[in-house]
Simulated scan of single mutants.
Amino acid sequence: MTTSDRRLWTRHELLVAFGLYCQMPFGKLHAANPKVKHFAALLGRTPSALAMKLTNIASLDPAVTTTGRKGLTGASAADRRMWVEMQNDWRRFAAESEEAIESIANNAAPIASADDLAPEEREYGGRDIPVQTTARLGQRFFRRAVLSAYNYRCCITGLAVPALLIASHIVPWRDDQSNRLNPRNGLALSALHDRAFDLGFITVDENLSVRVSREGAGASDRFYADALLRYEGQQIALPEKFPPDEHFLAYHRSHVFLDSL
Rank of each mutant, 00 (worst) to 15 (best):
D245T: 08
V16M: 06
N106E: 10
L8A: 15
A112W: 05
R80C: 11
G186R: 05
N182H: 10
N179A: 12
S76I: 04
Y251W: 13
I111Y: 03
I111V: 14
G200V: 04
R136M: 07
E121P: 02
D226H: 15
E240W: 02
R143E: 08
K70V: 08
V171T: 09
A118R: 11
A75W: 02
A112H: 10
R174F: 09
T10L: 12
W83V: 05
S113G: 09
Q132K: 14
E206Y: 14
G158M: 06
E215A: 13
P239K: 01
H255A: 13
H255Q: 15
L54T: 02
S209F: 07
A31L: 05
K53R: 14
E13M: 07
F26V: 10
T67W: 10
S260M: 13
M86G: 00
R195Q: 09
A227Y: 13
A58M: 05
R92K: 15
L14Q: 05
E13R: 03
A109S: 13
N185G: 03
T157E: 11
K35R: 14
N185H: 03
I104Q: 01
P47F: 08
S213L: 01
W173K: 04
P239F: 01
F142M: 09
K53D: 08
T46V: 11
A237M: 11
N182A: 08
C22T: 04
R45F: 03
K70R: 15
M24A: 02
A94N: 04
L165H: 05
I111L: 08
H193R: 15
G158T: 05
S48D: 12
Q23K: 05
H169E: 01
R140D: 09
M86P: 00
P172V: 05
S220F: 12
L15R: 07
L8G: 13
V171G: 00
T66F: 09
A95D: 06
L181A: 04
K35M: 11
A63F: 08
F93R: 01
T67A: 11
G216D: 08
E206A: 12
L72A: 10
T203R: 02
V146E: 00
T10W: 12
L208P: 00
R184M: 03
R222M: 09
Y21W: 11
D205N: 15
A114V: 09
G233A: 09
V210H: 01
I57G: 03
R184F: 00
L60K: 10
F223K: 14
Y21G: 03
Q139P: 10
P47H: 06
P243F: 02
V171Q: 01
I129R: 15
E102F: 13
I156F: 02
A108P: 04
L229T: 12
I111W: 03
F197Q: 02
I202F: 09
Q139W: 02
G233Y: 15
Y224S: 03
N151C: 11
E206F: 12
A75S: 12
A109E: 13
G216C: 10
A112N: 11
L192W: 07
F93K: 00
P130E: 11
S260N: 14
N33K: 02
R230I: 15
L208W: 01
G44F: 04
Q139V: 09
A112F: 05
S148M: 03
